[in-house]
Write a protein that binds this DNA or RNA. Structure first.
Lengths: 204, 204
DNA sequence: TGTTACATGTAAGTCGTTACATGATTAC
DNA sequence: GTAATCATGTAACGACTTACATGTAACA
């Protein structure tokens, strides 16, 4: 649903190949949208057909035995991106496995529950740190994409462009922190349930 | 992916019809998982085929011109639920339209951006309140499902059962609060960008 | 010579949404 | 009688994942 727009948004900074886009959408990248390469290559062809991007075929390496395709935004593509940004989106529906499972943790061994909260904490802690680094880079205007984007924008818009990106990633940092805190409260809860509250009332 | 388990989890409290389950999964309900009725009826038939639930056909109304099917967990269904709860899940990948869009708000009119942050705030504020009410109900053990679930569980497990559910929904409350705060910071940001920081430097 | 990174695709299948379709029962 | 709610489905389509498939180029 948002994949085409996520692609247009990245291409807005400048032309890229499907491979480069794939790396951007990778789990390990600092992106808010994830997609796999089959999805991306397919979608790029579709966008090309719709006239929202154009492809330029380029030789790979000096021997020119293979080609790669660099995609660039067309004017319609840019217009579509702007139209989409202005449009209010319906709120996403909740569908969270971790929380669904957490609701039924009474069925699992305390040890297992601990492991899961640990994993949750580790995951979001890592995300938090990655996004913190990313915000630093954004503020210093040191990221590849941002530099390219700023190069193609009016000087007086620079502050605004940076501010919105920083705000978005700051939000993700806060979100990750919230998850870390939740997992930690979860760990405390299991620890408390594990050793019964009143030693006199404990069985066997 | 988690739909079958979300269904098993609900049926764990006691038998229900597809229609009742649909209401539980509705956007307006206090659930962490969303699903639509075609998905639910289809999945129930699949679970029945797999032996994880059994269906009992019941007459609808006194005239018995139509039937409804109440689904109940089988022993294998219960076992599967327990197996699933104990299993560590791979973390979900980020895919968030609101944040994706927010990264490119420089393209939208300040008025439009404001509207979107407003909508974001309103949505999560409402969720927050709903979940707060839900936690109150859980603590007082006044929800339908929880009473049914507790009725079928050993007395000494009651505290644990309630505690995990409360913890999960508390997490969702915190999450919603984080989103509300993010939207509010966003509104402040737009307001600040709208009136240029230095009146002397403003153009026309 | 072999491994890693570059680079692009197809095919099958699952998960989820939306639209279509039908009919009974209850309350006003 | 008629509207809302109860109740259950099918069909078509779109989004996403996983497995399969292929080949080049750089580097050690």
């Amino acid at each position: 649903m948002s994949l085409p727009h996520a692609l247009l948004a990245l291409l807005d900074a400048g032309p890229m190949t499907g491979y480069e886009l794939t790396k951007q959408f990778d789990q390990s990248a600092d992106r808010v949208w994830h997609a796999t390469h089959p999805q991306i290559y397919t979608e790029l062809r579709r966008l090309e057909g719709a006239g929202l991007v154009t492809a330029r075929e380029m030789p790979r390496g000096p021997k020119a035995k293979a080609v790669k395709r660099a995609y660039a935004l067309t004017e319609e593509g840019g217009a579509e991106l702007r139209r989409w940004v202005a449009q209010v989106e319906a709120p996403q529906r909740v569908r969270d496995v971790a929380y669904l499972k957490a609701t039924y943790y009474e069925y699992a061994e305390p040890e297992t529950v601990r492991e899961q909260f640990e994993a949750h904490r580790a995951h979001f802690h890592e995300q938090q740190q990655r996004w913190e680094r990313h915000v630093e880079q954004l503020r210093a205007r040191r990221t590849e994409l941002l530099s390219r984007r700023l190069a193609g924008a009016a000087r007086e818009d620079h502050e605004k462009i940076v501010a919105f990106k920083v705000h978005a990633y700051q939000g993700l940092i806060e979100r990750a922190r919230t998850e870390v805190a939740w997992a930690e409260r979860g760990l405390a809860l299991v620890a408390g349930l594990d050793e019964p509250p009143d030693p006199a009332a404990s069985a066997e």
